[in-house]
Simulated assay, not measured.
Amino acid sequence: MKKSQRELPKSVREPLSAFADIRGGVLILGLDGTRGFAATGVHDALKLSNDLAPLCSTDMEPALRPLIRVRDFEDVKLVGAEVPELDPAQRP
């Protein structure tokens, strides 16, 4: 879970990579972990989802192909990325 209001957090690569290296996982932008995972939402969900896709596919090695969705939750928008586990042959 990552708090993200207007842009992708700089640390977003770390959980994406970790999820891919283990059993997969879900990254959710718009939750504040310091406030009990309160739904704070994101400012521009479409922009964040459009920024996240190329980060995963072209800026990470090996490339990731998460399923990225925008969801309404508690009157705010969240961006979720379902990251599949990488095939062991693709791992560095």
Rank of each mutant, 00 (worst) to 15 (best):
L46M: 05
T34R: 13
F19M: 15
T40I: 09
F73Q: 08
T40C: 13
R71S: 05
S57Y: 02
R71C: 03
E14G: 06
S11K: 05
G25R: 03
S49M: 15
L86G: 10
H43S: 13
P15T: 13
D44P: 02
I28V: 15
D72K: 07
V83P: 02
P15L: 08
V79Q: 03
P54C: 02
L86N: 09
P88F: 01
L48V: 13
S11H: 05
P88V: 03
E14C: 04
P66W: 06
E82D: 13
Q90A: 11
L67W: 03
S57F: 00
V76K: 06
L27A: 07
Q90C: 09
R23C: 14
G41P: 03
V12P: 01
S57K: 14
E85W: 08
P88R: 11
L46A: 12
D32T: 00
L78S: 00
V76W: 00
E82G: 13
R35M: 15
I68S: 01
K77R: 15
M60P: 02
L29H: 05
L52S: 09
P15W: 11
L67C: 03
V79A: 07
N50A: 15
A81Y: 03
A89I: 09
V42E: 02
A45Y: 06
A20T: 10
R69D: 11
A38Y: 10
F73K: 07
I28R: 11
